[in-house]
Simulated scan of single mutants.
Amino acid sequence: MQATASTPESGLLRRTKLRHFLRTRRAQVTPEQVGLVHVERRRTPGLRREEVAALAGVGVSWYTWLEQGRDINVSEGVVNAVSDALMLKGYEREYLYRLAGHNPPWPRGSRPRDANGVRMRALVEGWSVNPAYLTDRYGRIEIASNSARSLFHVGLRGDNCLVKFFTDPTVRVKYPDMDTVARGLVAHFRAQAARFPEDPEFDRIAGRLHEHSPLFADLWDCHEVDNPYQRVRRITHPQAGLMVFDRVTMRSPAFPESLLTVYIAQPRTDTAERVRGLLHSHARALLSPSLV
């Protein structure tokens, strides 16, 4: 389905992102991976443009224009063929479709009558001992359960999980797998930005973080995309020690722009007992990791 019409400025921005994305993905695919014979030494890694064009079944000039971000019409079939040629994963493929102008429009319409999120709040609070929170399209907290506020000591409306992670070093050290968490956060934020191509706030947030966080800047320039709906999160709590969760994210048709995140204590660990102990001792006043 064709995306909704965009302004000339937003179209230029989308094509710029498309150019960078195609170049970075092409550089990561070797000739051997796609069955091409590598007979000569190359100055740069990855596939050449003519090789991607051949694999996708399109003209070299046409693919060059596409990668240069020229204003050309791209069919869904060509997007799919280029995705195959570059060996794109699921959400990378979806991201390319969006940049090429073939994204289904995000469900629009008025929010439910309980504009304050009464139903969603009841759902979030219903997760009991498992921390849960709701974030908006940018990763800002809208609702946090009592267990989430007690465990993480964060949950004020408007707190941005991404910004806190990359601007507060005391947050990052809570995560033994900090590099993996950072990579996933940035890839997810880029995927979110593609869902709302007309919204300049994503670029403003990314621009500020790009200036203030070298780590974010390096990851953002990689142009990776992902939607980590389920990930293992290891969190080192200053009082409870190491806890291991399955971090699960979900979307609701009633709240299409929001994301519900739940931390489920992994079985065969003592994480649930540690969380209960913190809750029973009113740990919400203690310093804890940010919600990421």
Rank of each mutant, 00 (worst) to 15 (best):
R190N: 14
E201A: 13
L291F: 03
H153N: 15
A254I: 03
D221F: 04
D226W: 07
T64Y: 02
R234D: 12
Q239N: 08
A187W: 06
S252F: 01
L96F: 15
L123R: 00
V275I: 15
L162I: 06
L279W: 13
G46A: 01
Y63W: 10
Q266V: 14
Q266W: 07
S252V: 00
A193P: 03
A5I: 14
P112C: 12
A122L: 13
N103E: 15
E67Y: 03
A285R: 06
K164T: 09
S150E: 13
A265N: 05
E125L: 05
L259N: 08
I141K: 13
V181D: 02
P214Q: 09
V29S: 02
V82H: 05
V173P: 00
R113C: 09
T271V: 02
R15T: 04
L134T: 00
R25A: 03
A206R: 05
P104Y: 00
V225A: 14
L99N: 03
N146C: 07
R49Q: 12
V186F: 12
R14N: 12
R93V: 01
A191I: 06
G158S: 04
E201W: 06
L88W: 03
E201K: 11
V248P: 02
T24D: 03
V225D: 04
T236G: 03
G11S: 14
V292P: 02
A144T: 12
L162C: 05
H210M: 13
N227K: 04
F166E: 05
P214N: 12
V154Q: 14
Q192H: 12
V232T: 14
G69K: 05
V275S: 10
E32K: 06
V37S: 14
H153V: 03
L99K: 03
S290N: 13
E257K: 09
A193C: 10
C222I: 06
S288D: 10
H102G: 03
R111D: 12
A194G: 10
V275E: 09
I205Q: 09
L55Q: 11
P105D: 14
A5P: 01
R93F: 02
P197N: 02
R121K: 12
R98T: 07
P107G: 09
L55M: 10
R26W: 02
R276F: 07
E50P: 08
S288F: 05
V129R: 11
V275M: 13
A5N: 09
M178N: 09
M250S: 10
A283V: 05
P289I: 07
R140K: 11
G90F: 07
E76A: 15
F245T: 10
F196K: 03
P131Q: 00
E257S: 14
G241T: 09
P214F: 12
T261P: 07
A191S: 15
V262N: 11
G117S: 10
M87N: 07
R49W: 08
W106G: 05
A182G: 08
P256W: 08
I205A: 02
